[in-house]
Amino acid sequence: MNYQQQWIAFSTLVRKEIRRFLRIWMQTLLPPAITMSLYFIIFGTLIGSRIGDMGGFTYMEFVVPGLIMMSVVTNAYSNVVSSFFGAKFQRFVEEILVSPMSNSIVLWGYVIGGVARGLLVGLIVTLLSLFFTKLQVQHVAVTIGIVLLTSIMFSLAGFINAVYANNFDDVSIVPTFVLTPLTYLGGVFYSIDLLPEFWAKVSQLNPMLYIVNAFRYGLLGVSDVSVGLAFGMVGLFTLAAYGYCLYLLNTGKRLRQ
C-alpha cells in the first residue's frame, strides 16, 4: 500500500470508531456527563462547602481536574476495549486482519478512536464543571500534553485488555477493579499531603497520582508530585504499551489461530 492508501485505510478505521461511539451516545457520552454532574453537586457543592480550602483552592476547584482526568482515562480505555473485543467476539475483526493494512495502522486507528472519545467526554465534563466553578488554564502545553498522552496510554491498555479478553466479564474487570480504585486513591479528592507519611509513600506507587497531579498543575498550577516525573512515567508506560500492542498484532497472539 502506498502512503495515500495507508492514509485512506487509517482514516476509514478512525471514522468508523468515532461513528460507533457517537451512534451509541446514550451509552458512551451521557453516563459520564450525568455521573460527573452528580460528583460536582455532591462532592463539590454539598460536601465541598463543609471541607473548605485544599491546597489554596476551593474544594470544587481542587477536585475538578481529577474528575475530568478520571473521565478521560475511563472513556479512552473503555472505548478501545469494548470496540476491539466486540470486533473479536462478532468476528468482524477478520475484516481488518485479511486487509493489507499494516499492524501499526490498525493499532493507531483504534487508539485514535479511544483518544477521540476520551477527549470528547473530557470536554463535556469540563463544560459541565463551568456551571460549578471557574477554570483558568495555567499551563496550556502541560494540560494538552498530559491529557493527550494519558488518553493514548489508556487506549493502548484497553487494546491489550481486548486482545486477552475471552468474554464480556474480562472487559469490565480492569475498569472496575483496577482503574476506578487507582483513580479514587490517586489524589482526585484529596492532596496526599493530608495522608500519614506511610500512605503518602504508598500513594506514590500509584501511576494515577502522577497523571491527576500533572493535569491539576496544568489547570491550577499546583501539584503534589514533579510534573517532569509525571510526563516521564506516562511516556514510558505509553511506549511500553505501544510496543506490546504491536508485538501482539505482529505475532497474531490470540487473534490468529
Binding site: M1, N2, Q4, Q5, Q6, I8, A9, S11, T12, L13, K16, R23, G86, A87, Q90, R91, F92, E94, E95, I96, S99, P100, M101
Partner: peptide
C-alpha cells in the same frame, strides 16, 4: 463475520477503505 449493528452500506464501503 460482520458487525450486527452496522448498515450494509457502511460494511461494504468501510471494507473498501481498508484496502485503500
Amino acid at each position: 463475520n460482520f458487525s450486527n449493528f452496522e448498515a450494509v452500506w457502511d460494511i461494504v464501503v468501510n471494507q473498501a477503505g481498508y484496502y485503500g
